[in-house]
Amino acid sequence: MSAGDQLFALQRRERIMDEVREHGSVNVSDVAARLGVSELTIRRDINALAQQGLVTRVHGGATLRSSVETGLAPGLAGHDPAVTKYTIGMVVPSLDYYWPPIVNGARAQAAQLRARLILRASTYDVRDNRRQTESLLNIPGMHGLIVAPDTSGDAGLEMLRWLDSLPMPVVLAERRIRSAAGVHGPESVVTDHAAGTAEAVRHLHASGHERIGLLTQSEYPTGRYVRRGWRSALTSLGLPTDVVQVDGIRFDAPGREREMDDVIERCRRTGTTAVIVLPDPQAIALEQHCLDRGIRVPDDLAIVAYDDDVARFGDPAITAVRPPKQFVGREAVNLLIARLEAGSNRPAHRVKLSPELHVRDSSMRAGVDAVETTSKNEAEESA
């Protein structure tokens, strides 16, 4: 490799590291397009950075190096006592769907604010959430916690009260603090899922749909707010509510063809011409099944997904509500450090962030000019 080539490689890798620090992660194809080089070149750069211990390779890109990686002492990854001001613990219920962008956002913001973030993965079980949280409490020098336990039911109320009793600030990420718990200390940052769903309903109505259904996967905590926003929007627009509404769909499980056929038949029987589907993979499965059955999307059935992790890969690409996941993580860190800086004199903050609707081909009927809107959204996604 010539001296010039080495210089260009260093510049690319510095650019990659700048983006990882700012956003928590990078995507190979996006970086390659911006820098005008091949994806193979960017993969080689990421491999080199990973070998230096600066990033972690993941499918399709890289993230900041994690404190839970093999070979790293717990909580010590990237820790420099000379520059670290705070140590923050974070417990999330999953490290695959939905949560990685939140973790990346929190990690990037913590790095900017001279904080060390120690991550622990849990499950959606409240007892496991508490065990993982207790493990962080036992780490010397811990200043505060970001957690995401299930807050529903009696167990959820008990968890909220326990968090309120801890001797350090606590911020809940994508979890609401129920008034029935009677707690005042914990803070929270959540996506306004009801508002996002209501925007999806209004979009479908503006596209000519009067009968708009809802399909949700039951174990998603997001579901209750999606249902609330959907029903509220139907009512405010004066639209009929005797449409398809199914909670507990599993279009990725055995027997899914029969289940999707049943949904399609119920749409036909009730005159439902559009559906909102939580989450994305279920929406893609339904879209593919419709096309296999000769049902045109969006002409016969329009589809809007909720989450927007993989909706763009549908054919046609699926319109989706996108929660601001990275900003949830960033704001959780901001809230926690603001409390640490200001002390108990700062009132508890309960923050709601607005999601965005990204309009694509799956929701626009023929005759509705979707070209400008779709192009605008796709341009934003590639920026």
Rank of each mutant, 00 (worst) to 15 (best):
A233C: 08
V243L: 02
S232P: 00
R228V: 09
T216D: 05
S218K: 15
S218C: 11
Q217P: 02
R228F: 13
L239E: 08
G238D: 10
H209M: 02
V244A: 07
G208F: 06
H209L: 02
V244Q: 02
G223C: 08
H209K: 03
E219F: 15
R227K: 11
G229D: 05
V243S: 00
L215K: 02
S207I: 01
T216G: 06
L234N: 08
L214S: 04
R227Y: 06
V226Q: 11
Q217A: 12
D242I: 04
L214C: 11
R224I: 11
S232R: 12
L215N: 05
H209T: 03
T235P: 02
E210R: 14
P240Y: 08
Y225D: 07
E219K: 14
T235H: 14
T241H: 10
E210M: 10
T235Y: 09
T216E: 09
R227V: 05
G208Y: 06
I212H: 01
L234Y: 11
T216F: 05
R231M: 11
D242E: 13
G223F: 05
G213D: 03
G238M: 11
L239M: 14
A233Q: 01
L237N: 07
T235N: 13
V226C: 08
S232Q: 14
G223M: 06
I212M: 07
I212P: 00
R224H: 09
L214D: 00
Y220I: 09
R231V: 02
S236G: 10
G238L: 11
Q217W: 13
Y225C: 01
W230D: 05
G213I: 07
T216I: 12
S236Q: 15
G229M: 04
R227G: 10
P221A: 09
L234P: 06
E210V: 08
G238V: 10
T235V: 12
T241A: 10
T216Y: 07
I212V: 09
I212C: 02
G208D: 05
L239R: 09
Y220T: 06
D242H: 08
I212Y: 03
W230K: 04
R211E: 07
V226L: 11
G213E: 04
P221W: 03
L234F: 13
W230H: 15
P240E: 10
R224C: 04
R228N: 13
R224D: 09
Y225G: 00
P240V: 03
G238R: 10
T241D: 14
V244L: 12
E210A: 12
S207T: 08
T241K: 07
S218G: 14
Q217Y: 14
V243Y: 00
L215S: 03
R228E: 15
P221H: 06
T241S: 13
T222F: 08
T241P: 03
D242R: 02
S207A: 13
W230Q: 05
R211F: 07
T222A: 13
R211Y: 05
R231L: 11
S218D: 14
Y220L: 13
V244W: 04
S236D: 15
L234E: 10
V243M: 00
G213R: 00
L214V: 06
R228K: 15
Q217E: 14
